[in-house]
């Protein structure tokens, strides 16, 4: 475990970009996924906020500090571009604003001290409760020269899901961005051919969003019928 990988403690030092508390992505009520009546367990009144680890204050520990410093030096608009850096479980995540994502990726690829030559693709995550930041696009980068990896995360609202394409910097993101568009509806501006890749070309909706149903059918057994997985009781 590297040092400095705990979330924001109380107070703390000044963070380069604006400090944010642990990013709340939802609130859960009750214990067993049953709402309304039917839950007699007594846990029905439970209210839990679900929060992802928040921005970490400096020093980050290990090579993370050096990387952040280099990026700050190379990128004149660092304060603008970077919303925060999260160090969690030995990994570094840089949260970037969408307008600057191509700049940041270019700097990460080209600077000799950073040299993240290989992009491991883009994927999306949908946080429906995180208003105005519902869709996250996550870029994983790998540096072959320095043998390190890094994550860059961009958050966009549902109402305006546009992110500039990274294919000019990393051609490998071509199909990955098509897949993220296919499953989440994030539109990558400037992509050479942004069409559906895994679903049929005329499929309505974006399947991996949280508001898209799993789409199963009830299964018949002898003497019973089991509902599809997304309509069963959930213990989480």
């Amino acid at each position: 475990m590297t040092e400095g990988n705990h979330g924001l403690e109380s107070g703390g030092e000044v963070v380069p970009a604006e400090a944010e508390a642990a990013e709340v992505i939802g609130v859960r009520h009750g214990m067993f996924g049953v709402h309304g009546s039917g839950d007699t367990s007594g846990y029905g009144g439970l209210v839990r906020t679900v929060a992802m680890p928040g921005a970490t204050p400096r020093p980050y520990g290990g090579w993370f500090d050096e990387a952040a410093d280099t990026l700050e030096r190379v990128l004149p608009s660092y304060g603008d571009a970077v919303e925060g850096v999260v160090i969690d479980r030995g990994e570094m995540t840089i949260h970037v604003r969408r307008e600057k994502v191509v700049e940041v990726l270019q700097a990460l690829r080209d600077d000799p001290l950073l040299r993240f030559e290989m992009s491991l693709g883009v994927s999306g995550v949908h946080y429906p409760d995180d208003t105005d930041r519902e869709l996250h696009a996550v870029y994983h980068l790998r540096s072959l020269t320095h043998n390190r990896q890094l994550r860059v995360e961009v958050a966009v609202p549902d109402a305006d899901p546009h992110i500039p394409t990274a294919t000019s910097v990393y051609p490998t993101n071509d199909w990955h961005e098509r897949e993220t568009y296919d499953f989440f509806g994030i539109i990558f501006d400037g992509h050479p051919a942004l069409t559906r890749i895994l679903m049929p070309d005329d499929w309505p909706g974006h399947p991996q969003r949280k508001d898209y149903p799993l789409g199963g059918i009830p299964v018949e057994y002898k003497g019973a019928e089991i509902p599809p997985p997304d309509q069963r009781r959930v213990y989480s």
């Binding site: 679900v50 992802m52 680890p53 995540t93 491991l120 995550v125 994983h140 989480s236």
Partner: peptide, 27 residues
């Protein structure tokens, strides 16, 4: 516990990476 992680291993075809996001639950 909540958080996200990326783990890569060397599969016969190349780098097989998994990006998991957890929200603290059992799923």
């Amino acid at each position: 516990p909540a958080g996200q992680v990326y783990q890569a291993i060397e599969s016969p075809r190349g780098e097989l990476g998994v990006h998991i996001v957890s929200d603290g639950g059992t799923r």
